[in-house]
């Protein structure tokens, strides 16, 4: 077998809470660091996963009964694919939002305090796929790695 043709995998399960998200991101950061992703790539992945996980924590489950989030990461020489799964509420319209950047050239009192999440996911990930199956949401975000 040619080295590098087999993806390295990391599978995690976490409660859907803000603090649990922090811990999961730290774990993923260490995993990516040990696999020699650049600082910039690690930062990009952490931000996109943070936004996707925060969305699940805030919108998929009721605040008083946080459910489970599963993460499956697969890394090979060309790309990193992260699948986030939850069994909470489906995304509106059964599709991942477009992620429009909120207007910033507005009066100070009207400046946006949110609505950046999907914009950042769409802007930074190379591919985003969503599907709903058997009561689970599966969001796949893919990052291409710079050619070696």
């Amino acid at each position: 077998m040619i080295p590098g043709t087999t993806a390295q995998r990391l599978s995690l399960s976490t409660p859907a809470s803000d603090l649990a998200v922090r811990a999961v991101l730290a774990r993923i950061r260490r995993w990516l660091h040990a696999r020699a992703l650049t600082d910039e790539d690690r930062g990009t992945v952490e931000l996109v996963l943070a936004e996707a996980l925060n969305n699940i924590v805030e919108h998929a489950y009721p605040a008083d009964t946080p459910g489970e989030i599963r993460l499956d990461l697969a890394l090979d020489l060309t790309r990193l694919v992260c699948v986030l799964s939850d069994h909470g509420t489906a995304l509106p319209g059964l599709r991942a939002p477009d992620g429009i950047l909120p207007a910033h050239d507005v009066a100070r009192d009207a400046l946006p305090e949110g609505g950046f999440g999907w914009f950042l996911i769409r802007d930074l990930a190379d591919r985003v796929d969503y599907r709903r199956a058997a009561g689970w949401n599966h969001l796949s975000v893919e990052f291409r790695r710079a050619p070696l």
């Binding site: 925060n54 009192d109 400046l111 946006p112 305090e113 609505g115 999440g117």
Partner: peptide, 20 residues
Amino acid sequence: FVDSSGLGAIVAAMKQMGGD
């Protein structure tokens, strides 16, 4: 690390200072 929630909180911190 700042995510979009943190970014929103920094914007909110400016707005809550009031006036200009």
